[in-house]
Design a protein around this nucleic acid. Structure first.
Lengths: 158, 158, 158, 158
DNA sequence: TTTT
DNA sequence: TTTT
């Protein structure tokens, strides 16, 4: 990688998520998210400003959105920007920038997830899906983010 | 700047904030914040892992913490890492790493702030405190983040 | 604020910045930024994927862009998403999502800035521009992010 | 997950990385990273402030650090905070806060990596290590972050 | 349209 | 202990 493309949002869903299933039973969720920032201008007047984002979630995260998110839900979304372009029937060039989420935290329901993919059967059978996101580890083979620092600290010469 | 030092936390306060006032009536708040990440290990077992952070807030943010935060509050904190070192009475070198917050969003109370400094009398009188953080603007002199894009869009040759 | 709207990008400028000056001599810079991520797919093949973003900078940051950035420059941009909509002459609804930057770090030139606004004469004369961004402090009145922790540590009862 | 614990740093290595191999041939790299922020105080004087962080990398990222990083290297690190505590021989309680990195971008060498783990043989054989980080996809089974938006866009009813 |  |  020679780049970073990261978005962090906290806001409320404008509507229930729109969830579709593609071939292979792959879930895709889409919803609008409003992030509202309030501040005082120089005159001391409270100003509120809302920005709307299109959020897209895939697979496990999409299924979680379907199960747990609804209009008004407060969520934390971490993801990356993706701009798609196409031409409509009249031949007009169209652009849409979306936030493709790879982490989701539900902030009003006391429930949440890491990279939801880990909870989903991959179909490919042997997949063990070790994602980064929050941090995952294995049994005999601890993952990257949760190294055996506790027990194995003695092995560390630092 | 040739560097970036940024921390983003969402978690719960372990205790009520400890708020002190220094000379000049400058507020400083300090509290422990627990960030808990849950995930499945390779065996599919749900693992929960909590990390504790020391958060320090100054001035307006400290006063907001005093007013609105308490043990258990769920907050979003954005700030930077700061490590202090000193020697205790026995001459042992001690280190403490803290997160100095410059943005705070309260996630269970439906109330929150940008860079709290803007809401606070600066004592220096003329202070006009134009902060970045969330975005602020003035009257005759619009701020950086909230440019007159709406009205002035026609002026923009892009 | 009841929301967070944050974008972090590292990438290269596709062209020299386009800088304009609005009424009041306010600078606005605009440029395309490519963020490229490379990774291996499941077959082990190296995949490179580039996303293009429109970055907008105001005032001091715009002037810095004009002075120091050019086609190919590698930069770190921190900002927020802003979607504008309008109708073109044919009455087609158009959308454009931009990243309004409030922090900039130049990564190939060994020079960089915080929230550039502080380094720029505001014309309004009295401006004292205390921004958050990196951290600023004053003389008799230290700022939020750089509290007198060093000297004043003894005052702190923590 | 009911929490977020995220750190983003850009800075220079103070020394060459210290790389160790644990049982199972698991690499661990450790180094100090200096993040320097420069700004003007209220008097207009340029102030430079350096913070030192301890960064820990595991497995693939550690091996990349060993191969490509050295004293002075400029890097982007994304990770999470982890505080360890122990007692030294005199029975003094000690704390150390580290940044456990799960993404690394080299900014002076024109070379870089995603979550390096994907490039590393896991030894456990069957591991397929699909991490989030930058975004990964497969052949017949596209990953989360790089969905077949291009081709499959027609399948999307949005 | 960038970069490696 | 880095870097500009």
């Amino acid at each position: 990688m020679r780049g970073v493309n990261k978005v962090i949002l906290i806001g409320n869903l404008g509507r229930d998520p729109d969830v579709q299933f593609l071939e292979g039973n792959i879930a895709v969720a889409k919803f609008s998210l409003a992030t509202t920032e309030t501040f005082k201008d120089r005159a001391g007047k409270l100003i509120s400003q809302t920005e709307w984002h299109t959020v897209v979630l895939w697979r496990g995260l999409a299924e979680l959105a379907q199960k747990y998110l609804h209009k008004g839900s407060l969520v934390y979304i971490e993801g990356r920007l993706r701009t798609r372009s196409w031409e409509d029937k009249e031949g007009n060039k169209k652009f849409a920038t979306e936030v493709v989420g790879d982490n989701l935290v539900m902030l009003d329901k006391r429930m949440d997830v890491g990279n939801g993919d880990h909870a989903i059967s991959h179909g490919s059978g042997s997949s063990t899906g070790q994602q980064s996101g929050p941090g995952h580890h294995g049994e005999g083979f601890p993952g990257i983010e949760i190294p055996p620092m506790g027990e194995a600290a003695d092995d560390l010469p630092f």
